[in-house]
């Protein structure tokens, strides 16, 4: 990795970390999710701080090119993330349906009671 590229990457990583930490500080992300994002930032920092670390690992694992390993790992992480989000989405969907049903039934009950009350009064 050339020096210019390394410096550019370090700058990007710093910005990345800044945004993540800010989002966490403002409680835009749940703690359980924020751990994952801090970890990704840390991994980036470590990979950049120790020269030849990524190259050595990819060589050890038998990748012909370092980028191949990086892409491979990144894609796996993306799949994991998407799947996780899908699970969360399904759960939320279920909750939403339940809420709509319960609110609708409650509304009906309130309206029925109001009508009864009116009849009693008149």
């Amino acid at each position: 990795m050339g020096l210019t590229l390394r410096i550019a990457l370090i700058i990007v990583t710093v910005i990345y970390l800044f945004f993540i930490l800010r989002a966490i500080k403002h409680k835009k992300v749940q703690i359980s999710f924020s751990i994952f994002w801090i970890l990704t930032g840390l991994v980036l920092v470590i990979a950049l701080a120790i020269p030849n670390l990524v190259e050595n690992i990819s060589h050890l694992l038998g990748f012909e090119l370092t980028v191949n390993m990086i892409f491979c790992v990144a894609i796996f992480i993306c799949f994991y993330l998407i799947f996780n989000l899908n699970i969360i989405l399904s759960k939320e969907n279920k909750k939403n349906i339940l809420l709509v049903q319960e609110i609708s039934l409650l509304k009906k009950r309130v309206e029925d009671l109001e009508e009864k009350q009116k009849e009693k009064n008149s």
């Binding site: 349906i97 049903q101 609708s104 509304k107």
Partner: peptide, 15 residues
């Protein structure tokens, strides 16, 4: 019963 949001046939029947 008026559903406050469209749920599709499954959600409606379950209500």
């Amino acid at each position: 019963v008026n559903l406050v949001h469209n749920l599709g046939i499954g959600g409606a029947v379950q209500t």
